[in-house]
């Protein structure tokens, strides 16, 4: 692996609110090299979006974030405010979820893109760059004068991608960029992101609940459960031959169209994700696990190697009696 551009070490995110202390992310580590793609998958509430917010420190005030987020060797979590503002968007940008709410409803989309350019590249031809960016994401440049509500869901998502690319970041975080879109538009946006990632040589962290999507977009995939990574490896392997029972269940939840193996098999997972305030002891997945052993409620699982480039946090990968 080349020298990573983004290196996350033991990241922990804890929300302190009226509903008590919620440890949403409990020690997550990963690395992303220049031009590499990493997928991060998991159910709602597993902490994956908290990671996106922690990387640029845009989580709500009062949220406790510890660990290290090394961007080119510099820790984002300990940066001074001025340095942090300079790094935001120009080094690392986020493609937010496009459900209408991520764009300011009373500002033209062009000026929302131009604002970022004027902030980080004063003196640049912001208008020309906005037109360029819109065409880059497949929108006519005249769309710049539209307000968000005048665009369709897919067009808004394209605007958010153009916005994320405005200052030529080297790291792109895509936080569920296709969730609110219908299937056809999802595919288009996905193709666009993939194409841009390759053409611009971006390092991309792609966050989604749809594991099947990652198989196409990302070279490597990490699956999260209850605030931790439970399996990581090459996307094809994780999707088709998951070592962790949770990753396997998540993969099975998205059937391959036309594959007879998926047709009759009941898919889905019993039970709900655990409440992060009251995690089960031992492996947090054991109450929902179909292949749990009696000692799963007492073993502290960690990421054990499955193969040369794969790891999973399940006692079964250690072998031994089932």
């Amino acid at each position: 692996m080349t020298v990573p551009i983004l290196r996350v070490r033991d990241l922990r995110v804890t929300y302190r609110g009226e509903r008590g202390v919620v440890p949403a992310v409990r020690g997550v580590s990963f690395e992303l090299g220049p031009g590499e793609t990493l997928g991060l998958a998991g159910e709602s509430g597993c902490g994956k979006s908290s990671i996106a917010g922690a990387l640029l420190r845009v989580l709500p005030r009062g949220t406790e974030v510890t660990g290290e987020v090394l961007l080119d060797g510099e820790d984002v979590l300990t940066m001074k405010p001025g340095r942090l503002r300079a790094v935001r968007w120009s080094e690392m940008a986020i493609v937010f979820q496009g459900a209408l709410h991520s764009l300011n409803p009373v500002q033209r989309v062009g000026s929302q893109i131009a604002e970022a350019i004027e902030l980080h590249q004063p003196g640049a031809d912001a208008r020309g760059r906005v037109s360029e960016l819109l065409e880059l994401v497949g929108l006519p440049a005249r769309r710049a004068i539209d307000y968000p509500h005048q665009l369709s869901g897919g067009q808004r998502q394209r605007v958010l991608i153009a916005l994320a690319l405005a200052c030529n970041p080297r790291v792109l975080v895509a936080d569920e960029p296709t969730t609110a879109l219908d299937v056809m538009v999802q595919a288009q946006v996905l193709d666009l992101l993939q194409r841009l990632q390759r053409e611009l040589g971006l390092a991309m962290l792609f966050i989604t609940h749809d594991l099947s999507m990652l198989a196409h977009v990302c070279r490597r995939t990490a699956v999260m459960y209850a605030g931790r990574i439970v399996e990581e490896g090459p996307s094809e392997d994780v999707f088709q031959r998951a070592a962790h029972p949770y990753a396997a269940a998540l993969a099975a939840a998205f059937p391959v169209i036309g594959d007879p193996a998926f047709r009759k098999r009941p898919v889905g997972l019993v039970g709900d994700p655990p409440d992060p305030r009251e995690l089960p002891p031992g492996c947090p997945f054991h109450p929902r696990c179909a292949v749990a052993r009696p000692d799963c409620d007492s073993i502290e699982v960690e990421l054990w190697p499955v193969a040369a480039d794969r790891r999973a946090a399940c006692v079964h990968v250690l072998g031994g009696p089932r």
């Binding site: 917010g53 120009s90 709410h101 991520s102 500002q107």
Partner: peptide, 28 residues
């Protein structure tokens, strides 16, 4: 609102986020 998170992520100062993005929407 999410668009304020985005405005902050862009690198705007807190007062800029408030005056450029929050204020006009709140005035409606």
């Amino acid at each position: 609102e999410d668009y304020l998170t985005l405005a902050r992520a862009k690198g705007l100062r807190d007062a800029q986020v408030r005056d450029r993005h929050a204020l006009r929407n709140a005035l409606l």
